[in-house]
């Protein structure tokens, strides 16, 4: 008897938000992305970089926030996380 493979590995949906020069290079302010379960921030950024060829240089120089907290590239994502691409900031005083 043939055994059916029913355990499809579930992926995750994450929301990527772009700001400032990253928003301009991506030509949009956000995108929903499918990533493998337990993917890291770095893996998600690789997917973003492939989807938006003008972005990789910006991504390398950006800080990343997940759900409004700064994280490192090895941070593990969860379903429905909001990932913000934060290019070098320049607010505040002249």
């Amino acid at each position: 008897m043939v055994q059916r493979v029913s355990a499809i590995i579930p992926g995750m949906k994450v929301r990527i938000r772009f700001f400032a020069i990253a928003r301009e290079r991506a030509d949009r302010s956000e995108v929903l992305l499918d990533v493998p379960a337990n993917a890291s921030v770095g893996q998600a950024l690789d997917v973003v970089g492939l989807q938006f060829p003008k972005l990789p240089a910006i991504l390398r120089r950006s800080m990343i926030a997940v759900n409004r907290e700064y994280v490192e590239r090895d941070h593990r994502l969860q379903d429905n996380d909001e990932i913000a691409i934060i290019p070098p900031v320049s607010g505040g005083a002249p």
Binding site: A20, I21, V89, S90, G91, G92, A93
Partner: peptide, 14 residues
């Protein structure tokens, strides 16, 4: 405060 706003606050100037 003036100095530190430039480091972590996600605000950009064009």
């Amino acid at each position: 405060a003036v100095d530190h706003i430039k480091e972590t606050v996600p605000i950009w100037k064009r």
